[in-house]
Design a protein around this nucleic acid. Structure first.
Lengths: 227, 227
DNA sequence: CCGCGCGATTGATCGAAATCAAACCCTCCG
DNA sequence: CGGAGGGTTTGATTTCGATCAATCGCGCGG
C-alpha cells in the first residue's frame, strides 16, 4: 500500500508540528506542505537501498523507520532510528545523487515525502527553508556524534541507562516509561544484539529498574545516573 | 603562542583552497576571509572544552586537531580527527551556545578562527555562505554516520584496511602511503587502542601490507578490499 | 656517540558483548 | 481451550579488543 497521495488533514496537522516544519514562517510552511505527498509502508518494507538514486527525502508522521548499513557478509547495523517528527535523507539535498544507507519500515509507517529537486529549488528562494534544513542537519550531526562517543565510551548497561534517562521527564525521582517500539529495535539503536539488551536490563535491576514487556519502572532516577 | 592575528598571505592562500571556502563566490569569499583570524596552538594544547560557551568555529590550516569526549571515569574517545582543510564546530552556528566536545591540538596547528555571531550574520545575507555551511554539515553528517556503521560492522583489521584504501589513489594495484600523523592518533580515529592498531597492522601483513614507521607499503590493493 | 624518552610493539590476561542454542512467554487465531 | 509463532530471555561458549606490563626502537639532545 505505498501509494503517493496528497496529505489528508490529520497528516498535515502532524506534519506542521514536526521540529523541521515548526520553525518555518507562514509562507515557507505553505510551500513545503504543498510539496509533500503522503506514503504508507508496511512493517519490514524497504523504503530504499544504499546506492539507489535519491529522489526524495522523508519526514516520519507515524511509526518508526530503521536506517542501516550492511557489511559484505550481509550483517546489518542500525545507524539511526527515526520516529514521528524525524526527517531523514535530507543531507542528500546538497550532496551526491545516491542514498548512502538502507531504510526499512520497522512497523507500519506513514511518511511525508519531499522531492529533493523541488525542495532544493524552494530553499534557494526561501531562507526560512534553508535555515530549517541547516538546523536539522546540525542536530543530526550532533546526535550522530553522540552516538559515536556513546559507542566508544559506554558499556551496554550504561547505554541503556542513558536511553532511559533521556526518556524520563527532567527532575523526576522515579518514572514509568513505555517503550515506543520493540526491544529488538532499541537494541539496534544502541548498537547491541537483542540478547545484550536483555542482559543489560537485567543488570539494571539492581539499580531499581523493573521491566515487564514494554513497561519500564524506574524507582530511582539518580541511581541510574550513577551507572 | 595562541595569539589572534590577521591571516598572512600564505595562510590566506591555504584557506581559500579548503573545501569550505572553495565553493564560495568572489564576494562571499572576501567576506569570510575578512572575518578570519589566525591562531596557533602547540601540541597538546586544549582549544576548548565540552560545555564551554562557543564563540568561534575553526578551519584547520596545518596540523591535526582531535575532537573527543570524556566519560565519567575520564577515559577519552575521539569523535573526529580534523586535518588541513577541515572545519569543525560549525554545527554550533545554528544550535545551542556551548561546545559539545573537547578539542585538542594533536600537534602544532594553525587555524583560521571565525566568530560565530558574525558568520551567522554573514550567512543571513549571503546564500553562498549558507550553502557552503550546509554542504559542510551534510558532509560531516555522512562521514559521522559512516563512522557509526564502521564501528558497528567492522573489525580492527577491516577498519585499518578501509582507512588505507581511502588513502590510496583510486584504480591503483599497489601503493605506498605516508601516514600524516602518529599511529596513536590513527588508533583513536578508528576507535581502537594503540595496541589494537598495531596488531591490526600485523594481521594485514598476510595481505601484503608492510609497515615501517609512518611508511606503509601496499603490495596488492585488491587483496585489501577482500579483508 | 651515547643515553634518554616517548611512541610503538609484543605478550599475557581480562572482560564485554556476539554468537549459538534452547527455553520461555505472550498474543493471536483456529 | 489449545496450538502456533514471533519476540524475548536465559545459558554456554567464543571472539574481539581493552588493559596491564615489559620491551623495543627510533629520534633527539647533550
Amino acid at each position: 500500500m505505498n501509494k503517493l497521495l496528497r496529505l489528508n488533514s490529520r497528516e498535515k496537522s502532524i506534519l506542521v508540528k514536526t521540529p523541521f516544519m515548526a520553525s518555518l514562517g507562514q509562507a515557507a510552511l505553505q510551500k513545503m506542505t504543498d510539496l509533500a505527498t503522503a506514503i504508507h509502508f508496511e512493517s519490514r518494507d524497504i523504503l530504499f537501498r544504499e546506492g539507489e538514486e535519491a529522489e526524495s527525502f522523508y519526514c516520519v508522521l507515524s511509526g518508526y523507520v530503521r536506517l542501516y548499513r550492511l557489511n559484505k557478509d550481509g550483517r546489518e547495523a542500525d545507524i539511526r532510528i527515526c520516529g514521528p517528527g524525524d526527517t531523514f535523507a535530507e543531507c542528500l539535498l546538497y550532496l551526491g545523487p545516491n542514498y548512502r544507507y538502507n531504510a526499512q519500515a520497522a512497523e507500519n509507517v506513514t511518511l511525508a515525502r519531499f522531492d529533493i529537486q523541488r525542495v532544493r529549488a524552494a530553499a534557494e528562494q526561501d531562507t526560512d527553508i534553508s535555515r530549517a534544513i541547516m538546523q536539522s542537519l546540525a542536530n543530526h550531526l550532533l546526535s550522530t556524534m553522540d552516538c559515536v562517543a556513546n559507542d566508544r565510551l559506554q558499556t551496554a548497561p550504561q547505554r541503556v541507562a542513558h536511553f532511559l534517562l533521556t526518556s524520563c521527564p527532567k527532575e523526576s525521582t522515579s518514572a514509568s516509561i513505555r517503550l515506543p517500539f520493540q526491544k529488538s529495535l532499541l537494541a539496534g539503536k544502541l548498537g547491541l544484539a537483542p540478547e545484550a539488551l536483555s542482559r543489560a536490563f537485567s543488570a539494571l535491576r539492581r539499580a531499581g529498574v523493573t521491566v515487564r514487556g514494554r513497561l519500564i519502572q524506574i524507582n530511582d532516577v539518580n541511581a541510574l545516573r550513577q551507572i
